[in-house]
């Protein structure tokens, strides 16, 4: 089995949000709902301020909190690529997963009365294409691939200031830290 995941290079992200909007386009999301979101953290004091962005989606964790919380087993971790996928037929829209995910990656879709999440653009990747967000990245800061390959080149870091401790759920994520957090 291969575990697929994302790699985010904090050093070069300019916070342009092309990934966030491309994700909304791909998944037909309205405002107020995000399968991927760019967040900004800042601090320091003029003239030495600091800030950085994090672009995060579902991390397709090793121990997904969403899955544990689901009363009807609508969330499953797929064996062949480790994707955490939501079965919309089974989902009863109870919202347990939305509260359970420490990354805030699970969304409740009013229109459907069900949960929604990043499926790593499974429909595209199965045809050899990249996920919409990674293909959109103007600075080439966001990439995807097998987690072991990403870790080989990008390291083992999966949490920085502003994020949950990665030991909680084992996110399939590699973060290349910038000077603000390292």
């Amino acid at each position: 089995m291969v575990q697929m995941g994302f790699c985010f290079d904090m050093r070069s992200c300019i916070g342009c949000k092309a990934c966030q909007v491309a994700c909304k386009d791909k998944n037909c999301l309205g405002t107020g709902v995000f399968f991927r979101k760019v967040q900004t953290f800042e601090g320091g004091k003029f003239p030495r301020p600091w800030f950085y962005h994090l672009s995060l989606a579902c991390n397709h964790c090793q121990r997904p909190a969403c899955m544990e919380s689901c009363p009807v087993d609508a969330l499953q971790k797929r064996t062949e690529d480790g994707l955490v996928l939501l079965d919309k037929e089974k989902c009863i829209g109870c919202g347990s997963c939305v509260g359970a995910c420490p990354y805030g990656a699970m969304e409740y879709l009013d229109e459907e009365g069900k949960a929604g999440k990043c499926d790593l653009c499974e429909q595209l990747t199965s045809k050899g294409e990249e996920p919409a967000c990674a293909a959109a990245c103007v600075m080439r800061s966001l990439t995807y691939g097998p987690l072991d390959v990403l870790r080989h080149s990008g390291g083992n870091l999966a949490d920085v200031k502003g994020m949950p401790n990665s030991s909680e759920t084992g996110p399939s994520l590699v973060i290349i830290p910038s000077r603000e957090v390292s």
């Binding site: 092309a18 909007v21 386009d25 293909a135 959109a136 103007v138």
Partner: peptide, 10 residues
């Protein structure tokens, strides 16, 4: 590669 504006054209 297009920016967020290009990606919102539709």
């Amino acid at each position: 590669r297009a920016c967020a504006r290009g990606r919102a054209l539709r």
